[in-house]
């Protein structure tokens, strides 16, 4: 029972790391980016290539997966995404679906359509016993890493100069620009960090979520759920939503495997009907 709860939390934390970038682009910049999973996939594949092709250890490949996805995100943002910020939602949807399709087909072409396997180091396999609860070592590792990241992110957003500039740029882009805040650069940096985090999540999650070319399509809805259910005004909302989703998904698959993914969809539909702006919205969410 507690093991399931813990697995759920680990899964939820992973989802949060994957989706937090989206919660910034979607929630703060109001950009519907369905291609977010493509960056996660890029990070996952970067890890696979490094580990299997060059013998880089797992821990060493994680930062690279972050950097690879962030660089990928930065290039795309400067080249393409930037032009889309002011467009209608329909344009953004079509644009990002197009990117997803390109990413899926290109990955299939370059890497093949099979599942990729990330070999974890020995000390991350097996289980540990904490207060009588058996916990997978890798799950514990995930919770620690992701938990640390959440704290760092919250700190950056609320304490640093960059954080307050970002919040200002989001609240009112025109006024922020008038005050001399380089909004374009801020958005680009944010987009890159969000993509990098997704890449890191993809690398961390390859073991649990699996990694194949259809990854961006398979998990698109999960990311969107985290952001919409969590509301987009804060970082804690999506975090709570991700944990909730993780626990519900793991517990659902364990206790009522026949229902499978239904629980998630029904839960999300219910939330969207009752609270169209998300569960954890403070005041006027967008």
């Amino acid at each position: 029972m507690l093991t399931i709860l813990f697995d759920g939390i680990a899964y939820g934390m992973l989802l949060f790391i994957l989706a937090v970038g989206l919660s910034v682009t979607l929630g703060l910049m109001n950009f519907v980016n369905l291609a977010h999973g493509a960056f996660a996939m890029a990070g996952g594949y970067a890890t696979v290539i490094l580990m299997n092709g060059y013998g880089v250890p797992f821990l060493g490949s994680l930062p690279v997966s972050f950097l690879a996805a962030a660089a990928f995100g930065l290039v795309l943002e400067r080249l393409l995404y930037r032009r889309m910020y002011q467009r209608s939602h329909l344009d953004q949807v079509l644009f990002s679906i197009g990117l997803v399709f390109m990413a899926v087909a290109a990955t299939d072409f370059l890497m093949g359509s099979q599942q990729q396997i990330v070999r974890l180091p020995d000390w991350l396999r097996g289980r540990v016993e904490i207060a009588g609860v058996g916990i997978g070592a890798y799950r514990l590792f995930l919770v620690i890493v992701c938990g640390a990241l959440v704290i760092v992110l919250q700190g950056i957003l609320s304490r640093t100069r960059f954080g307050s500039q970002l919040r200002a740029a989001v609240d009112d882009t025109r006024v922020a620009r008038g005050l001399g805040i380089p909004t374009g650069r801020i958005f680009a940096a944010t987009f890159a960090i969000g993509s990098g985090l997704a890449g890191l999540g993809g690398a961390l999650g390859a073991e649990i979520l699996g990694l194949d070319p259809t990854f961006p399509l398979k998990f698109m809805l999960y990311f969107l759920i985290v952001v919409t259910v969590g509301g987009t005004a804060t970082i804690s909302g999506p975090f709570a939503a991700a944990i909730l989703l993780g626990i519900a998904d793991v517990a659902g698959k364990y206790y009522v495997p026949r229902l499978g993914a239904f629980i998630i969809y029904i839960f999300m539909l219910a939330v969207l009907i009752l609270r169209p702006n998300g569960l954890f919205v403070r005041g006027g969410g967008r």
Partner: peptide
């Protein structure tokens, strides 16, 4: 096999 890629490219 890669019709999907072109479709995406056309959309973008």
């Amino acid at each position: 096999a890669y019709w999907m890629f072109w479709m995406g490219a056309i959309l973008v």
